[in-house]
């Protein structure tokens, strides 16, 4: 464990060196949020409700996205497929640690950096916006959501890792990360709340694991999921984590056999 602890400390130091980057990412998300608020404000000028949402609940849904994203966001597929393609993992493979473990530690270090810099900013911005729009958000629901977010993070991590490991078989890799982000945008509830779609489509969405990354924690934070449902969905999420964990192991094991260590 000591070697992973050392890696975590190094990774944390690296991440904290570029605090400005995190601030720009925050601005980026904030501009996106402002754009969304503009459009929904315009929609509610002529509508009193949209689906089961009123103005306050739709705004709180979108305000919660960046906050939940700070917990559940994973970006392994942004860089790791390139490392495989360029043969840069050769030095990691021969070292006495698990590459998956190392990626996990590095991702956790990014999360810790985000908690220390992004989350406080989000909480202040979220509080001000919640006050401005008179949103009803309760601390207990937020705590429940944060607990679930730990597992949402794990699920997202293993999905992203599986996508990254598929780079052993594909020549082109940078599109893979984009592809998974498109999938999560739609099926994870980033583009629109999933309960705005008709019943038939919603059933299809409920068979997929992506709703656990954003939609499910957001609905818990909004206090819109009954406790028995949380438990049921939570177990389903654990199953999906198990599935993707096993898939990652399988892809890594077989991928290494395909690995050509180009450039080395």
């Amino acid at each position: 464990m000591k070697k992973y602890w050392v890696d975590l400390k190094i990774s944390l130091a690296n991440n904290l060196e570029y605090r400005g980057q995190l601030f720009v990412w925050f601005l980026n998300e904030f501009v996106g949020l402002v754009s969304t608020i503009f459009i929904w404000t315009a929609i509610f000028r002529t509508n009193t409700s949209v689906g089961t949402y009123n103005f306050q609940s739709i705004i709180s849904y979108f305000i919660l996205i960046p906050l939940i994203g700070a917990f559940t966001g994973v970006f392994v597929s942004d860089y790791f497929p390139r490392k495989i393609k360029n043969g840069e993992i050769s030095s990691d493979i021969v070292k006495p640690y698990s590459v998956t473990g190392l990626i996990f530690v590095d991702t956790v270090s990014v999360k810790i950096t985000q908690f220390t810099i992004k989350v406080p900013i989000y909480l202040v911005a979220g509080y001000l916006l919640a006050n401005y729009f008179r949103l009803e958000l309760y601390f207990t629901h937020l705590l429940e959501a944060m607990f679930v977010c730990i597992f949402s993070f794990l699920l997202h991590f293993f999905i992203d890792l599986a996508i990254s490991y598929s780079a052993f078989w594909f020549q082109e890799v940078w599109s893979l990360g984009l592809l998974i982000s498109v999938i999560i945008t739609v099926f994870g509830g980033l583009a629109f709340p999933l309960d705005l779609v008709p019943e038939g489509v919603r059933t299809l969405f409920s068979f997929l694991p992506f709703r656990f990354i954003f939609y499910f924690p957001i609905k818990i934070a909004q206090g819109q999921v009954p406790p028995e449902m949380i438990l049921k969905e939570f177990f389903q999420m654990l199953v999906w984590i198990g599935v993707f964990f096993l898939l990652c192991r399988l892809l890594w094991k077989n991928g290494l056999k395909k690995y050509g260590a180009y450039g080395n």
Binding site: I39, I43, R45, T46, N47, V182, A191, F192, L196, V197
Partner: peptide, 21 residues
């Protein structure tokens, strides 16, 4: 795919409302 998402968002919105601004 990115633009399919935009169009899908538009479709979902208009399943619930009849006009935007």
């Amino acid at each position: 795919a990115f633009f399919a998402v935009t169009l899908m968002g538009l479709r979902v919105l208009f399943w619930n409302v009849s006009e935007v601004a």
